[in-house]
Each structure stands twice: as C-alpha cells, then as structure tokens.
Design a binder for these strands. Structure first.
Lengths: 143, 143
DNA sequence: ATACTAAATTGTAATAATAACAAAAAAGAA
DNA sequence: TTCTTTTTTGTTATTATTACAATTTAGTAT
C-alpha cells in the first residue's frame, strides 16, 4: 500500500512519517494541483490528529528533495504537484482548474540562463479552459 | 512629462487620474518587477494622500487593459511589470531579484492550447542569480 | 464656468495564506 | 529499551489581498 512512498522517502534519506506518506500518496493519487487547504482538509478526515503546519512542513521538505514541485501560478496560493518530468500548466481564470499541458519546449532543461544557475523551470498559460468555454456558449444562447 | 501615460490611458478609454499616471510612470521607470508595497511606499513619499487600496485598484484596471502584467512568480505576492512584449523571467531564490530573460520560445504567442483559450503566457526560471553566485564563492573562499 | 453623475480614491476592517515558535510526540540509532 | 534528534502539533503572528462605505474627483452636459 505505502511501500512505494516509503521507498521514495528512503531514497532521499528522509524519515518515514505518517504525514509525509499521506501527503505523498495524496499528490500521487490527485493530479489536480491542490493547494495546502485541499490536501489538509482531505487528509484530516482520515487522520484527525493531522496539523495544517505539518502539511506545510511536509510539502516543504518534499519540495526541497525535488519529490514534489510547487506552482506559483494562481497568484494567491501555492499549488502542489508530484514532480513528474517537466511539463507546462494551464490555469482557468473562470473555474480555477489547473491542467497539465504537454508541449515541446526548448527551455525546459536549461540549467543556465544568462549566467544564472537555474534550479526550476515553470511555464504556464492563463485563460479560459475548454469546459468553461462550452458553458459560456450555452449561457449566451439561452438567455 | 506625463503626456505619454495620459495617452496610454486615453487609448484605453480609462479615466485620467493621478494615481494611475503615477503607477504607470513608476513601472515605466522601474523595471524591477516591484510588488505592491514597493510601488505604494515609493509613491507615498511624493503623494502622501495615496492609498494602498488605490494602488491595488490601479494595477488591477491597468492589468485588465493589458497595460501591465502581473507575475505570480514569487509565490507569496504578485510582482508587476509594464507589459512590453512577452519575455521570460528569472527569480533568484537568494536575493529575490526578478530579472528579464530574453530567449526564443515557440509557445509565447499561442492563443490556443489543447482547446483552451490562452490569454496570458508566462515562463519563469528559479535559481541563484549570477550576482549571488559570485558572493557565494567569495564567502566560501574567505572562511 | 456650473452642476451633475458615474467612477475613482481613501481608510478601515476582514480574510486568507503562510511563517514563527515552543511543547509534546515519534523515528531511528545505540 | 533508552537516548537524541527530528517531526508533529497547536497556537499565535505576519503579510498580501479583498470588501466595503464614505468622500472626492473626472468627464460630460448645461
């Protein structure tokens, strides 16, 4: 059940703790780029002793070890993602959904830019997602 | 002095107000990607009646009209930039500086991605800037 | 120039995300 | 099992941003 996540933590010589395993599992099973609140309130249901601060701490150490990545995309909060290989994101200004975008990008694996040491690369698009566009059309046709 | 900014506002049929002119001028003269606090406290010196809320409001309407762009790059606050043609950014994890990066990117003018309507494109790199790397070396050599 | 109206500015108070901190609990090594 | 260090927890503090109502102002019509 949790072996996969235990292994990930061990491989990074991180202590195996219940919150870390749960956070990791949650992100692995929910590729919706949740914010801290979503992760916390969801895990809280089955682990009532969980603290919000622990979610912050766990995410931070997972991030430091490059197991997860954070997206500064919404502007008001960080969103988290299991750090599969680099990909871009699209955020819908209407519904807030964050979607993965798989497109070729020549700048994704740069480790140097203008003399600066690059540790993280992010690309994102903002706009109106396909789903919300459909809703929009429906609304304007009906009323 | 302000004709340039008056023209910009007029071209977008926005009312000409002192705060808007000042914010616009500030961003035009400071390409440092300031946050709201920097803009506010700087303008406050010469315009004591200015309110922080007004800076927020002005930036928002300028953004809606695509005169400025906001960068959700730091994770904790929005940074603002006169919306010159699209370019990437680099943010230093050490000193917090945000620097413009001019590189070719095939995805910068996309208006559609996977069926989603794109209204904004952002690409950013995080890491250690050239300047901070130099400082780092100096420190480790000296003790 | 004057009066009018809608929109903008101001200041305060509320909200929300995150960080700081100290005490209690738990992980991993001896 | 004991010990030490790290982690978790809960509370409190901080910071960016939004909400809101009252005052002021821009631009227009008179």
């Amino acid at each position: 059940m949790y072996e996969k996540y235990v292994k990930i933590l061990k491989d990074h010589t991180l202590k195996i703790t219940s919150p870390r395993l749960e956070v990791l599992k949650y992100l692995d099973e929910h590729h919706t780029h949740p914010n801290v609140e979503e992760i916390y309130s969801s895990l809280k249901k089955t682990h009532p002793s969980l603290s919000r601060t622990t979610v912050y701490n766990s995410l931070e150490i997972l991030k430091k070890n490059r197991i997860v990545q954070s997206l500064a995309i919404s502007g008001s909060e960080l969103r988290y993602d299991i750090d599969e290989r680099l990909h871009h994101h699209f955020i819908c200004n209407r519904c807030g959904a964050i979607l993965d975008i798989s497109i070729a990008c020549p700048n994704m694996d740069k480790t140097l830019q203008g003399g600066h040491r690059v540790e993280e690369v992010q690309g994102y698009f903002k706009g109106i997602c396909k789903k919300c566009q459909t809703k929009e059309k429906g609304r304007s046709n009906n009323g």
